[in-house]
Nucleic acid binder design. Structure first.
Length: 431
RNA sequence: UCCUCAGUAGCUCAAUGGUAGAGCAUUCGGCUGUUAACCGAAGGGUUGUAGGUUCGAGUCCUACCUGAGGAGCCA
């Protein structure tokens, strides 16, 4: 059974394609249907005189996105966008779309709301197909890189008893006779698994009840989180730049056709190779002030600030040593300046903002207990987490990388909503 | 949650406060190489909802609903 993506191997042969009618043009006694099968597009040609009259009529009256088995001879043709055409010898309609209820998504422009409402059908279009294939490649690259560098995949629970980070952004759910929360991060569990296995990672969905309406937020997104025992912030930066570079170069190497479909300018991606610039938070604030930002030392970067920082460099930039006050409670303080945390964020270029956040975790029992109390977190819920500091505590570090933000950046998209098949956002739970 | 903007045909959009239109889609007709094909014709509307101002409201006012862009927060 031939696929359109692999049609070149069948030049001159008769093949059967199982697919859908993507477009149909007619010119008198000629029909030019375009078929898609998920792997690509190919134009067919049907001469009225070459086929039985009922077959010609059947195709002529067929609505777009009707499913068909089409048989024809593959012919290389300069005029065809994909380089090949199909001289149709037989057509079997699997299911004909009704003309009273035609496929809603046309080849013309549509608005965001309409497309999101028809996301289940929008996925069939070439651009969305290409984006999902890039996402697939990014995920494969993530797994291959970590698997090949000594990390063990240990997935962490979705149902959790308490917050990993802030308590305000938890989705609450009933768990038999008690409350549970959907995970915001597997990190705390990763700290346990890395003490068991050395280097581990988890990769799965993450949920945040944030009332965020921006181009980089989903309420459900996928995050990969590596964690390393006996590691420091510099190790996180080393891993981050190698990891991101590998992923980006892998997509460039294996998905050029998809990037072309999306019309991504690949020049900025070609430059994504180590080393990445490393600047301290102090230096970042100086750069931002010079570029006109209103930021004051001690404040977190806004979207505009991240974009300004990203513009300053031709590849992702790593910002480290943030004020401890704006970072999570479990961050290890800098021994020289305890008001700073050994945290690092990786900011993607071209305005895509933070794609990685991580750093060195607090390894001292008493300091961690103090921070938990300062945050008004229930110490009993963190008893197991504190245990990790009682039984062979070691310096350890890791990060989380948001898959959708990386895919949006690699694809050059306006919004992360196109990077996942069925995005979950504020005001969007359907389909 | 806050700020800004937008809701008109299935879709994308027009329409000085004065008879609601176009392109695409659908239907019918034409065309033997079309590339979001083209040409001709037809059908298709409670202008988001509820009030209000006015001789008259798609247009102005109020509230609500829905969505978008942004802020904050984050990956």
């Amino acid at each position: 059974m031939a696929t359109i993506g692999g049609i070149a191997a069948y030049d001159g042969q008769e093949v059967t394609i199982r697919g859908w009618l993507y477009n149909l043009r007619e010119s008198g006694k000629l029909l030019f249907p375009i078929f898609r099968d998920g792997t690509g597009l190919i134009q067919g040609v049907m001469f009225k005189k070459a086929v039985p009259p009922e077959m010609f009529e059947a195709l002529k009256n067929l609505q777009l996105e009707s499913s068909v088995l089409v048989r024809g001879k593959v012919r290389a043709d300069q005029r065809a966008p994909g380089g090949f055409e199909l001289d149709i010898t037989n057509l079997q309609v699997v299911q004909a779309v009704s003309q009273d209820d035609p496929f809603p998504i046309t080849l013309k422009e549509h608005g965001v709301d309409f497309l999101m409402e028809h996301r289940h059908l929008w996925l069939r279009t070439p651009r969305q197909n290409a984006i999902l294939r890039v996402r697939h490649e990014v995920i494969r690259a993530v797994r291959d890189y970590l698997d090949d560098h000594g990390f063990v995949l240990v997935d962490t629970p979705i149902f959790t008893p308490a917050a990993c980070e802030g308590t305000t952004t938890l989705f609450e759910t009933q768990y038999f006779d008690q409350k549970a929360y959907l995970t915001q991060s597997g990190q705390l569990y990763n700290e346990a698994t890395c003490a068991a296995l050395g280097k581990t990672y988890c990769f799965g969905p993450t949920f945040r009840d944030e009332k965020s309406k921006t181009r980089r937020h989903l309420t459900e997104f996928w995050m990969v989180e590596p964690e390393m025992a006996y590691a420091h912030m510099d190790d996180v930066m080393d891993l981050s730049e190698q990891f991101i570079s590998y992923i980006v170069q892998r997509v460039l190497e294996r998905r050029p056709a998809e990037l072309k479909t999306i019309e991504r300018n690949t020049a900025p991606l070609e430059r994504v190779r180590p080393p990445f610039p490393r600047i301290s938070y102090d230096e970042a604030v100086e750069i931002l002030k010079r570029k006109g930002s209103e930021i004051q030392w001690g404040g977190d970067f806004g979207n505009a600030d991240e974009t300004l920082l990203g513009e300053e460099f031709d590849r992702p930039v790593m910002v480290h040593h943030y004020p401890a006050a704006i970072k999570a409670f479990y961050m290890q303080p800098d021994p020289q300046r305890p008001d700073l945390a050994l945290g690092v964020d990786v900011i993607a270029p071209e305005g895509y903002g933070e794609v990685i956040g991580g750093g060195e975790r607090m390894s001292d029992y008493n300091l961690l207990l103090q921070r938990i109390r300062e945050q008004n977190l229930p110490p009993q819920a963190f008893a197991w987490y504190l245990d990790l500091r009682k039984y062979g505590s070691v310096p350890h570090a890791g990060f989380g990388m948001g898959i959708e933000r990386v895919v949006a950046w690699v694809c050059g998209l306006e919004h992360v909503r196109e990077t996942i098949a069925f995005p979950r956002m504020l005001y969007r739970l359907y389909p």
